[in-house]
Design a protein around this nucleic acid. Structure first.
Length: 580
RNA sequence: CGGGAUGUGGCUCAGUCUGGUAGAGCGCCUGGUUCGGGACCAGGAGACCGGAGGUUCAAAUCCUCUCAUCCCGACCA
């Protein structure tokens, strides 16, 4: 492709509304333009990149035995009412009416549609297992779209849905997708990690997220350096050593602690470590008030709490409710003397602890010398806190570290949730009616582009892994007055095209600096520069965008020399040219 | 949905406090000189200052309403 005739307008300055590097670079390099909040146009370069990513994912899905379909983006409300999600999905589901005043929505996901499709056609266990996938534009009316392609309202996603006759089969479908995802992300040139994820209220099943490691990630993951344990912080467990138990302490007493609302303030005021302060949080779980106790230096993990309580709806109690239940301003709630039916649960670390400080359920007062076993009526102890750096790995008891990640894939064993609500059944070998066991598997195709850039860039621009770069080679011609150069560049372009290499040929009448900067910005993995001086010596300059290393390739026998250089560039990315 | 901020040529911004009829850099067009890491000179095009209403002799500037975008938070198959 001749750049002079292409459409890839670049910008010298960062766009004002971009915050993170991938967003800035995608706009500057002319890959995308925002149309409105969370909705982007893919320009030629961006589209090529998107297609590259999609093609690799498609190949790996096909290899894993999934079959491609294309499901409608516009979906009737009836299907969503069957599963109850029409009411529970919330505002993220963009709803509208057609001319006949019927309700519709734009598909944020396609469980209803595939299940509907399959229940009409699959009747026998002989037709199973079945795995259908699509690569499609989804729409979720996010409250706060942000970060360019990272969190859009309109985005491209690959979603697959498996249907199995029995649990063993469903597990096997799950792990087959898990493996396919690993292969796909490797081929995409990403540094990633599969982590255990919360399976939510669907229950009983399991789930993994595929995270691209990057400091700007929206998720935090806990990883073990020694073994393969890795989990989303929402889900992360740790090895717990029960304490030896506290010494007996003096009787409970109430002390005035005026104006001390936070744990830090209370600890400082009373001169005790934060770990000896009990943090009491009041939650509303499905309409019931629950008081949750954790050590003052810990954070409640709401996912763990929700799962422990078996609640579908969990949120921190509003200030008015806190005042009603504790009889005090926010900041002074404690385990003793809460009013009404309040369930009292505590983090396991507090079990057996004595001589603690806690809120007194009176404004401006706390209690000290609290012995939970002696003074309070804790219903249950459980792991309710969020993992922190240095907690021990639940598998091998090594220190864990916390890192940031971008979720680019999620595999999920759904079980019977949709097949039951939508009556998707088949006849088993015994002629018995059974519900299909489902799994769903998503990959954020457009988000992968942003993730790849977050992971691979420098001050000059993007560094694309060769497998997803819009073009593999950027060919810069530096003509000057030398009429021989354009001709040589044209010949080089033909040679490379003949080898099946995609080349973006900068044939513009621009100064060299402009060309170098644009090609760096685009992030094409291989740069070739042909100019008068090199041509006179019979060489082209080649640069590896990732490392910045330059070498010269002879024009005589160019194909061979290029092939070697190319293989080396791919290898630098951990990619095998022949396999991709 | 709460809190904060911003809307001025294609892009990045100044001007707003203290009203007097719009400016810079980049980009674009023409000509010339340049030509291996974002050139220089000369000339030029391009903005009803997000929108509506109001105050005033006079509004980008002050007031009211409204729309849009971004940031923080809550939320998140």
């Amino acid at each position: 492709m001749r750049l002079s005739r292409y459409y890839a307008p670049t910008l010298k300055e960062d766009p004002a509304d971009a915050e993170i590097v991938s967003h800035k670079l995608l706009v500057r390099a002319g890959f995308i333009r925002q149309l409105t909040s969370g909705i982007y146009t893919f320009m030629p370069m961006g589209l090529r990149c998107l297609n590259k990513v999609a093609a690799i994912i498609k190949e790996e899905m096909d290899r894993a035995g999934a079959i491609q379909v294309h499901l409608p983006m516009v979906q009737p409300a009836e299907l969503w009412k069957e599963t109850g999600r029409w009411n529970i999905y919330g505002k993220e589901l963009l709803r509208f009416k057609d001319r006949k005043d019927s309700d519709y929505c734009l598909g944020p996901t396609h469980e209803e549609v595939v299940t509907h499709l399959v229940r009409g056609e699959v009747r026998s266990y002989r037709q199973l297992p079945l795995n259908l996938y699509q690569i499609q534009t989804k729409f979720r009316d996010e409250m706060r779209p942000r970060f360019g392609l990272m969190r859009c309202r309109e985005f491209v996603m690959k979603d697959a849905y498996s249907f199995d006759a029995d649990d063993t089969g469903a597990d096997s479908s799950y792990w087959s997708m898990y493996e396919a995802y690993g292969r796909a992300f490797s081929r995409l040139g990403l540094k990633f990690k599969a982590v255990e994820a919360d399976s939510g209220p669907i229950g009983g099943s399991f789930s993994h997220e595929f995270m691209v490691l990057a400091a700007t990630g929206e998720d935090t993951i806990a990883t073990c350096a020694a073994c393969d344990y890795a989990a989303n912080l929402e889900k992360a467990q740790f090895h717990f050593e029960p304490g030896v138990g506290g010494e007996p302490c003096p009787p409970l007493e109430t002390v005035a602690t005026p104006g001390t609302h936070t744990v830090a303030e209370v600890a400082a005021f009373l001169g005790v470590p934060a770990a000896r302060v009990v943090k009491t949080l009041l939650y509303e779980a499905d309409g019931h008030v629950v008081a949750v106790l954790v050590r003052g230096d810990r954070e409640v993990n709401e996912v763990k709490l929700k799962n422990f309580l078996g609640a579908t709806d969990l949120e921190l109690a509003a200030p008015e409710l806190v005042r009603l239940v504790s009889g005090a301003e926010v900041g002074f709630a404690g385990p003793l003397g809460l009013k009404g039916e309040v369930r009292l649960v505590a983090d396991q670390e507090l079990q057996g602890m004595t001589d603690l400080v806690a809120g007194a359920n009176q404004t401006d007062a706390h209690v000290r010398h609290l012995d939970l076993a002696r003074d309070a009526r804790v219903t249950q102890y459980a792991d309710l806190r969020t993992v922190v750096e240095g907690d021990l790995c639940p598998k091998c008891r090594t220190d864990m570290t916390l890192t940031r990640g971008i979720e680019v894939g999620h595999v999920f064993k759904l079980g019977l949730k949709y097949s039951k609500s939508m009556e998707a059944t088949f006849l088993d070998e015994a002629g018995q009616k059974q519900h299909l066991i489902m799994g769903c598997y998503g990959i954020g195709v457009s988000r992968i582009i942003a993730a790849a850039i977050e992971q691979n860039h420098d001050e000059h621009g993007i560094k694309f892994p060769p497998s997803i770069a819009p073009f593999e080679v950027g060919l810069i011609e530096l003509a000057g007055k030398d009429a021989a150069v354009p001709a040589a560049a044209a010949e080089l372009y033909e040679t490379l095209s003949g080898l099946g290499v995609e080349v973006l040929w900068d044939d513009r009448e621009e100064r060299p600096g402009v060309k170098f900067n644009d090609i760096d910005l685009f992030g094409l993995p291989i740069q070739l520069v042909i100019g008068g001086k090199g041509l006179a010596r019979g060489v082209v300059e080649a640069k590896d965008r990732r490392t910045g290393e330059k070498t010269e390739l002879p024009l005589a026998g160019f194909a061979g020399a290029f092939a070697a250089f190319r293989r080396q560039v791919w290898a630098g990315w951990g990619l095998d040219l022949e396999l991709v």
